[in-house]
């Protein structure tokens, strides 16, 4: 049987590698936010560097996968969906990288009393991205399990919305300069965007899953 799958096995490995990279990138993002809030500059720089490398790797893998799918005329009926899925997944790691870059450039002055809430928000966003990666893996190998993971993506995305909303309210209720309040709100929004991107991919995936059932 293996001779039948000789061409596809390498591509399967590349898709798995791409999903691993997105997942790892999001985990690095969570640690990076934590390092920043703890004031560990050195570790934060390391995380920022790592996520840039991972994002570039994900881009490269995505392009290679796309090229092979077209050149070898594979999965003609699902090719568009898979390409759309990979591109939108790439947006998730891209968002995580951009957010860390904004921490690096703008260096927001987060009050110590809010640090834990920002960390929690980042953790919940990353959880939604991790379940998204699981649902994408299921899309390729175990189509019936996709829904099991997707509902968790939606759960954590809503949870992130709730936490972000509460955090913004706290920021604006504090005795701070308006400029600082607005700055802190922006960072709340930037972190929250990671789960928003995950939700966008989940919406696409839900449709692709219906299309994949014969």
């Amino acid at each position: 049987m293996s001779f039948l799958f000789r061409r596809t096995r390498a591509l399967e490995a590349q898709i798995d590698q791409f999903l691993d990279t997105v997942s790892e990138g999001c985990l690095v993002f969570e640690q990076g936010v934590d390092d920043y809030l703890r004031g560990d500059r050195e570790e934060f720089e390391e995380r920022h560097k790592a996520i840039r490398i991972l994002e570039a790797k994900a881009d490269g893998l995505r392009r290679e996968i796309e090229t092979r799918l077209y050149v070898e005329s594979l999965i003609p009926d699902h090719r568009g969906d898979v390409l759309g899925l990979l591109e939108s997944l790439d947006n998730v790691i891209d968002q995580a990288k951009q957010t860390l870059a904004q921490f690096e450039v703008e260096r927001p002055d987060v009050p110590e009393s809010l640090a834990a809430e920002y960390t929690t928000l980042a953790r919940v966003c990353v959880q939604s991205s991790q379940h998204l990666v699981d649902s994408c893996r299921a899309f390729f190998r175990e189509i019936t399990a996709v829904r099991d993971h997707l509902h968790k993506v939606y759960f954590f995305e809503k949870e992130a919305d709730r936490l972000a909303d509460a955090l913004k309210r706290r920021v604006f209720s504090m005795d701070l300069d308006l400029a600082r309040k607005i700055h802190l709100r922006y960072f709340c929004l930037h972190i929250e965007k990671v789960s928003d991107r995950a939700e966008e991919v989940a919406d696409r995936l839900a449709i692709y899953t219906i299309k994949r059932t014969i």
């Binding site: 596809t8 594979l74 189509i143």
Partner: peptide, 25 residues
Amino acid sequence: FYLSLRAATPRLRIHLLEVDALTRV
């Protein structure tokens, strides 16, 4: 054939790309 295949496919846990290769053959 369709109903049998639809019932069997989810249990087999075959990768999308392998389903594609098997379908071609």
